[in-house]
Amino acid sequence: MNLDDELRAALQREPAPVDFAAKVTAKTRTSKARVVPFRRRPAALALAAALALAALVPSAVYQYRQQRRAIQARDQLIAALSITKVQLQHVRERIQQNTRHKI
């Protein structure tokens, strides 16, 4: 017995069930109507990510600008206060000098 030949004979292709093609066609029709879950649609995911980014970026830029303005205002206030301090010291020194002269 030639096992190779026997196997070829035993393992010949067999026809698919008669209604096989019809069932596949029917399934393709339902698959068209099938709703693909959102997480399995890369284009939709990319669009959602882009929209989220588009909403986040201006907000982040606005926050950054506000923070910069607040820092500038603080620095200006500190500078103004230090100038005022110096001026007040001068005034105080003059008052003290005048007081000493009068005495």
Partner: peptide, 11 residues
């Protein structure tokens, strides 16, 4: 494609 390959795939 289905007609040509159904026997191969099913077998």
């Amino acid at each position: 494609v289905v007609a040509d390959n159904q026997s191969m795939v099913f077998s």
